[in-house]
């Protein structure tokens, strides 16, 4: 008996099966680490996945955690959809956050209906600007965007750090955090007594925008053609570089909104630890969600659940809170491995 690997047609059910299978396999793989940390397996997973869903307050907290991931997931998925591998959502997020922290302080004396759109627009613009050099290098000189977007993340993070430790240091507390946003610059809360803010709705709007473009607009068809067959797309008259360039900037802008939403919706100032890697988790959300808007939304909420859960588990059981990051990382690797199932089938002969 021999095993043979064949190419196959992608079927719909396998796209749904893959993320579920990936989650299952990840839990098995991480079990060893949980055991090493000295905590009970079922107990740990209970705190990870069930406990956060057991009360209204904690469910809402999961959504708060998921908000930036919905943005970055949409941003990354948008880019990946057309074969542009934007690994720079983290830096673009901080570019947007810095712009929001600045605009939220300098714009004064205007009503929130004016200020908030201005902040959002300004952040998107700043982040798109930050996404511009890699896009330009890619389309003009064919420089690998994986490298450039990834490396620019550190540049932006250190730039923000230098701002916070220099000119933007809070004059009152002297902490490395930017001055607090004007009240009119803050995103309104959606539910009284919770931290859920307007950013969550805007993130959903970003995903709807992603859906409309890919499922309904002509540009989405061009994106698909570029992503799946660059040469053939070019033959059929698609301006490949133009599509890639636009996609790169839009992706950057959406990632920037994640930063603005965190600054104006949650923290009200810019801090160095604004993002524990939301830009990178966006890659997990996009991949786990099969680059489909609904999939990305579910994946982002699931990752929000893991990060909430890992904190509760850490407090209650003393397991390292890094376990949440490990779960995410393993999840990405397992998903990528399983994606091969979509193009190949293993057969016994």
């Amino acid at each position: 008996m021999q095993l043979r690997v064949e190419r196959r047609e992608a079927s719909a059910w396998i796209s749904i099966l893959i993320p579920l299978l990936a989650i299952g396999i990840t839990l098995i793989l991480v079990a060893g680490l949980v055991w090493l940390s000295g905590a009970g397996l079922w107990e740990t997973y209970y705190y990870f996945f069930i406990k956060p869903l057991s009360s209204r307050a904690s469910v809402i907290e999961v959504l708060v955690k998921a908000t930036p991931l919905l943005f970055t997931g949409a941003a990354v998925a948008f880019a990946f959809y057309s074969g542009y591998w934007n690994i720079g959502a983290e830096g673009q997020l901080y570019a947007g956050a810095a712009a929001a922290a600045w605009l939220g302080v300098v714009l004064k004396g205007l009503p929130p209906v004016v200020i908030i759109p201005l902040i959002m627009l300004g952040s998107a613009l700043a982040a798109a600007l930050w996404a511009l050099p890699p896009a330009w290098l890619k389309t003009r000189l064919n420089v690998d965007e994986v490298v450039t977007t990834l490396l620019l993340n550190s540049v932006m993070i250190f730039f923000v750090s230098s701002l916070l430790n220099g000119p933007w240091r809070d004059p009152v507390t002297n902490w490395p955090q930017s001055p607090t946003l004007e009240a009119a610059s803050r995103l309104p809360r959606l539910l009284a007594g919770t931290r859920l803010h307007l950013g969550f709705l805007l993130a959903i709007v970003a995903l709807i925008f992603f859906w409309w473009i890919t499922a309904r607009a002509s540009f989405g068809l061009r994106m698909r053609a570029v992503g799946r067959g660059r040469e053939a797309a070019r033959f059929m008259g698609v301006h490949v570089n133009q599509v890639v360039f636009r996609v790169a900037l839009i992706s950057g802008a959406v990632a920037g909104l994640a930063g603005a939403s965190e600054v104006a919706g949650l923290h009200y100032h810019l801090i160095e630890a604004l993002s524990p890697g939301y830009g990178y988790s966006g890659i997990v959300a996009a991949t786990l969600g099969s680059l489909h808007p609904i999939g990305v939304a579910l994946a982002a909420i699931f990752i929000g659940l893991i990060s909430t859960g890992s904190q509760t588990a850490s407090r209650a059981l003393g397991v390292p809170s890094f376990l949440g990051d490990v779960v995410q990382a393993v999840l990405l690797l397992v998903t990528l491995a399983l994606l091969l199932l979509r193009t190949y089938r293993v057969r016994m002969i």
Binding site: L221, R224, A225, R228, G229, A232, A233
Partner: peptide, 12 residues
Amino acid sequence: LKGVVADLTVAE
């Protein structure tokens, strides 16, 4: 395969 994108539908 340079005249059509294999992963797109016939209509597309």
